[in-house]
Design a protein around this nucleic acid. Sequence first.
RNA 1: GUGGGCGUAGCUCAGCUGGUAGAGCACUCGGUUGUGGUCCGAGAUGUCGCGGGUUCGAGCCCCGUCGUUCACCCCA
Length: 417
Amino acid sequence: MKNEKIQAPKGVREYLPPESRGFEWVRNQLIAPAKLAGSQLMELPVFEDTSLFNRGVGESTDVVSKEMYTFEDRGGRSITLRPEGTAGVMRAVIESNLDRGQLPVKVWYSGQFFRAERPQAGRYRQFYQVGIEAIGVDDPALDAEVIAIADRGFKNLGLKNYRLEITSLGDNESRAAHRVDLLNYIKSLSLDEATTARAALNPLRLFDDKRAEVVEVMSKAPLLLDYLSDYSRNHFAKVQEYLNALGVAFVINPRMVRGLDYYTGTTFEFIHDGLGAQSGIGGGGRYDGLMETLGGQPLSGIGFGLGVDRALLAAIAEASLPEQSFNADLFLIALDESAKISVLKLAADLRIEGVTVEVSFGDKSLKGAVKGADKSGAQYLVVIGSAELESGLVTLKRMNDGTSISVKMSELKGALA
RNA sequence: GUGGGCGUAGCUCAGCUGGUAGAGCACUCGGUUGUGGUCCGAGAUGUCGCGGGUUCGAGCCCCGUCGUUCACCCCA
């Protein structure tokens, strides 16, 4: 009776060797600019009280209304696997009073997020993001810096075939004025029921509809950018001025819609053209009311989330992923049982010195073991048997050209250079 | 939640108008005593996703189901 194999849950993307090297590299490259800018790590739980997302992300969003992994724990509490990162950061900041010191609070995070969507190219039920948040200061220069940090991350990957789109969603005053006119405009259209329902939840969402007829009528709809208050307009103009000064290329997309309700003011998205339908590789924006909504001080903040899975796909699409082969410096083979202890000890000693050493295991023939050394990509090979143990001399073989020299076992490290 | 494509050896796939399965790569062993890559030889491996139906006979046809993938919706 054979046991059935267990598969990974639907929609998860795993990164196994050797591909995991690319994933690791991409994640490190994406977050490096944030560290250079003074952000510090925040390690957060992957599950939170469900109400955090209901309140923070917004009940009207698809993310909350139909894509959350929500379950009851053994104490009867409603728990949700985090679908995004910002709400959790805010919760932790408020809970631990991190906003009582020097502002802005600057943090970064990295990890898994979960949305119960139908999987697709570049869209997974468990996906990886790196992100930053800068909380407590409403300065357009900070907006520009945050955007530039994200842009730098993508440039670190060698990506070229992407664009940065920005817009401003304005302050409450701006949006209220626009909303009246937009709703009136939408009312004048003859839209189907489902679309009208969407518009009632958030009229801006209609700008995101891909159907040709909807795109057509919405092209004449009033744009939020034309309703910005003086404060918001000046703020947005400053952001653009700084981005230009920093040499960060962008286009203004007045119809940009984001899927989370907390965004206000500066909002941005990075779009890559080589990924199929799921083209967004990162996005973010300012959120004025979020802290207060979650029970904290009325502080503004700005942040972004970058999709590691999609950034990796983009790097692969652009062939910008560097060769990430893992090469040990040295490969050791024990010829017989009597040499095993010496080999293990030698490997351990060399590793303390910072040398990467692999050891052959198992009852392989010498030929098989050397073949293993070859496949490992190790630069050098040493075989140890009774002769070596007696003389203290080993044959150091350079694998790429097959040449070898005789060296003292105690001087191996120097010979590896 | 809706729709399309695809499930055959570890991987990539072939398999004619239905006659109880194949290639390449990878893997293991060998080609004289303690040294890989190339070459040569030998070898192991599949409940053809699963269940049912049609048929003398199904990898191939039909139905269902599960998985996977792409797209809609939405988003990283």
